[in-house]
Write a protein that binds this DNA or RNA. Structure first.
Lengths: 209, 209
DNA sequence: ATCTTTGAGATACAGTCGTATTCTAAAGGC
DNA sequence: GCCTTTAGAATACGACTGTATCTCAAAGAT
């Protein structure tokens, strides 16, 4: 046996470099050569691990998906529902350099998935996992009705806020306020009632206390 | 004066073709040559109207923004708030081929804006316009507190749902349900419950038709 | 009818792309 | 020790990119 290397580890290194490159320069700037340079390798060396650019892209998309799911699993599930949700969403919003990198890559892949069946399948799988985990949280917190619909709403809200934050760093404050407002509305109680206006029969606020 | 043409009209034609191309094949497939072919022109003819690819892209992004704002202005403002919002959001979701085309282009430009200051500025302007119009709707419907936060939430929700619909056509039903759930939560019934609501009960049980 | 200005097409150029092929060097197994 | 297998680099190729330049046809003004 000749010189041997941990192939999977190498692939993960390259994939990680690709994600970072997407974050810094955009998915359009990703080429076999730029990724190779970002990892200090020659283009030929990258070819040893990914025979095709598309294979490399797909691998990186899966890697990014795994990261999201791992972060999700890392949220303290003992937290009150609203806080847990807020914490989870905050880990997906580009509020600092690291999260901005992740969000950028995530959204870039999502848009490309619109014209790339392979990437679309990966995104669908990740979304499905997150959706079911979220629905589980909701149900175990007493949110037995329309748990999946609320889960989908939370996902959409998170993605939409992240997208806009990408090109509007000035408005992070406003958008975080919008996040809290939405969570207040979507997740009634526990704790002090959100300071929502409107006369007594405010829609959902009576369901759980 | 020699042969003369309506330059602005030509530019709009080319811009429209570019948007359609983005919708059908993705922003990566947009090149001076592909756009020229899509308009039945030669690449050189396109150069007469846009001396640079970036100028062409910027123009198309503005064109797309105008379309959104025009659609927004077209929503019947006499409608009850919740219905107006729902109608507005539906015109931005990829529920049919035409809207899918618009949403695809919109989101593609949004992601590219993350690394393109010019596009970012355009997006920010469009977002600002929509936000203020939405906030105006909300306030004039009695939603005097946190109108802008709710407006931002609505925008994020709309973008997030559109993004996911792009690569998950199978789940349109679920996502529309999530939209209604969110609207129910965000917009407490304006006096008379909207017709979506089932009887006088809490609007929590109201779902899409 | 001529001139002049313009739209449109064709072509050229340097650069980058993805991928295939070829080479060098090094690290186990014998 | 050599020999095989592999990692990695270098190179080659055709296709495509954005942009600059050139030519030609056509239409209004004189």
């Amino acid at each position: 046996m000749p010189k041997t290397v941990d192939r999977d580890e190498q692939r993960r290194q390259i994939g990680a470099a690709l994600l970072q490159l997407v974050a810094e320069r955009g998915l359009d700037e990703v080429s076999v050569r730029t990724v190779a340079a970002a990892t200090g390798r020659s283009p030929g060396a990258v070819q040893k691990y990914f025979s095709t650019k598309d294979e490399m892209l797909t691998f990186a998309a899966e890697l990014a998906g795994e990261r999201v799911e791992r972060r999700m699993a890392g949220v303290d599930s003992a937290l009150p529902l609203r806080q847990a949700l807020r914490e989870l969403i905050l880990t997906t919003l580009p509020v600092d350099a690291e999260r901005r990198a992740e969000a950028t890559a995530q959204l870039a892949f999502a848009v490309r998935a619109a014209h790339h069946p392979g990437l679309a399948a990966i995104r669908r799988q990740v979304d499905q996992d997150i959706r079911q985990a979220l629905a589980g949280w909701l149900e175990s917190a007493g949110h037995t009705t329309h748990a999946t619909a609320v889960a989908d709403a939370v996902i959409a809200l998170s993605d939409g806020l992240a997208l806009r934050m990408l090109y509007t760093p000035q408005e992070h404050e406003h958008l975080l306020a919008a996040l809290d407002r939405s969570l207040d509305a979507l997740i009634p109680g526990p704790g002090p009632e959100p300071p929502y206006s409107s006369a007594g029969a405010s829609s959902c606020s009576a369901s759980r206390r």
